[in-house]
Design a binder for these strands. Structure first.
Lengths: 229, 229
DNA sequence: GCCCCATATGACGGAACTGCGACAGTGATA
DNA sequence: TATCACTGTCGCAGTTCCGTCATATGGGGC
C-alpha cells in the first residue's frame, strides 16, 4: 500500500535486475526502464517517491530527464539520486546544478545505494521510510495506514488521515489554508479555502477522546497547527 | 504570508526556471526577471527580502543594478547574493565592493544556493529563516506563531503579533507611525496614523505581566521603539 | 503654575474570521 | 437498486478583531 515507489532508470540490464531484486526485497515497489523518454512517461503516469537515474542512458540523456522532471509541476519535488561514472566529475556538477539531490559513483555496492535512498527518503518524507511517526500521545503507522491515540485505535477517513499525517510530520508549525491545500490536496487543486476548516473539524472529531485536550490549534488569520500534548 | 520574498535576476532561462521551482518548493515566494531595469522596478514596487543577481545580464549590468539598489533608500538594506562565473575573480571583488552580501560561482548546485540564501537571511533577519527571535525577556517563534515572555505564553492578536515581530526584528530603533503603517499594515494602506497608537496600547496590554517594565518606549513627536529589558 | 499639543484610554459599530450543522453529489459495495 | 461512507459547499451564529472617535492624561516650554 504505502511501500515507497522507486523509478529506476538504468540501461545496464544486469545491474538493473540486481537492484530491482534487492530493492523489492527491502519492501520497495520498483519500476524499471532503460529509456529516458519512457522514464518520463512512467513518472507522469504514476508519480514515484524517488528516482534513481543513470547519467549515461540511451535516448534522452540523464541530464535532460532530470531537467524535465523538475520542470513538470507534478514531479518537481521528487528526489533524484543519480548514478555517475567515477571520472565524470563534470557530470556530477551538472547533475547537482540541474537539481539532483544526491549522487552515487559507479561502481557502488547495492547496500550503499540502499542507504542513500533510505537517507534521502527519511529527509524528504519520514513516513515514506516506513517509520511510524509519533507526536505526543498519537502514533501513526504509514505502512499499516493506522492511527492510534493512547493505544486506542482511531477511526479516520482518507482526507483526515492525510491531513493528520502531514501535521504529524511537521508538528507545532502553523500552516495557512492554502499551504494545507497544496500539501494535502495537491498543488493546483481548485478547492475553496474554507473547505479546509470543515476537514479540520472532522479531524478534530475523529481524534477526540473523552477528556482529552484538542491537539489542533487554531491560529486566527494564519491557519492551523498541531500541538503535541 | 510570511514566506520570504526573493527577486531572481537571471537571463539564462533554463536556470531561472529551475531555481524558481526549487525555491518555491522550499516555501519562498519568487519573482523572476532577466532584465536589470525591470529588476529595479520590481524591487521598488514590492521590496523583496533578498535579491539573487546574475552578474552577466543584458541591459543594465549586474554591478549597476547592485549599486542602484543600494542607493535607493527603500532597498538599501536588502541583502544581495551574486552569481558569477568561476574565472571572473575581478567581478567578485567588485561585487563585494559594491555591496553584495555573498557570492556563488557558477556552476553551482541549487542546494548550495539554497544554503547561502538561508544563511544570509538568518544573519539579516532571523525570523525569515524560521528561527526564533529574542529580545530581552521575550521570545518569538515565527514558525509556531507563538510569543512568550519569561517563559509565560502570551495571548496576542494578529495585528499586535505582526507589530511585535517587527519591533523585535529591529530592537531599540525608533519608528514613526507612517513607517509602522508601511511595515506592518503594508504599503499603501489608507489608515489613520492615530490608529497606530491604539494598537500600541493593545500590544502593551498584551505583553504586560505583573510588575514588569513596559518595554515599548514612546518617543514624543517621533514614534515608538522597543527597548529590550 | 499654566497652556498647548502629543499621546493614552475607553467605548463602539462594523468587518472579519471561525465553528457548526446541513445538504447534495459521487463512487463503492452489497 | 439501495445503502453507505466520503467529499465539497453553503449559510448562520458566535466571537474576536479592527479602525475611528471623543475624551482624559501628561509632558514641556513659557
Amino acid at each position: 500500500m504505502s511501500a515507497p515507489k522507486l523509478l529506476l532508470v538504468e540501461d545496464d540490464l544486469a545491474l538493473a535486475e540486481l537492484l530491482e531484486y534487492r530493492f523489492e526485497n527491502e519492501g520497495y515497489e520498483v519500476r524499471v526502464t532503460a529509456d529516458g523518454d519512457e522514464a518520463l512517461v512512467f513518472a507522469s503516469e504514476d508519480a514515484p517517491d524517488l528516482v534513481i537515474l543513470d547519467w549515461m542512458i540511451e535516448g534522452t540523456s540523464g541530464i535532460e530527464v532530470c531537467r524535465r522532471l523538475r520542470r513538470d509541476k507534478a514531479t518537481a519535488h521528487v528526489p533524484i539520486i543519480m548514478l555517475t561514472a567515477r571520472e565524470a566529475e563534470d557530470d556530477r556538477v551538472r547533475g547537482l546544478e540541474t537539481g539532483a539531490d544526491d549522487y552515487v559513483t559507479k561502481p557502488f555496492s547495492p547496500r550503499e545505494l540502499l542507504a542513500r535512498v533510505s537517507a534521502v527518503l527519511r529527509r524528504v518524507r519520514p513516513a515514506l521510510a516506513g517509520e511510524t511517526i509519533e507526536a505526543g500521545d498519537m502514533k501513526l503507522d504509514p505502512v499499516a495506514h493506522r492511527v492510534e491515540r493512547r493505544g486506542r485505535q482511531l477511526q479516520i477517513g482518507p482526507t483526515e488521515y492525510r491531513l493528520l499525517k502531514f501535521f504529524m510530520e511537521h508538528p507545532r508549525r502553523v500552516f495557512s489554508r492554502s499551504q494545507l491545500l497544496d500539501a494535502v490536496w495537491g498543488t493546483g487543486s481548485e478547492i475553496e479555502e474554507r473547505t479546509v476548516d470543515v476537514h479540520i473539524r472532522r479531524l478534530r472529531k475523529a481524534i477526540a477522546l473523552d477528556n482529552s485536550r484538542d491537539p489542533i490549534r487554531t491560529v486566527r488569520s494564519a491557519g492551523y497547527a498541531l500541538e503535541p500534548v
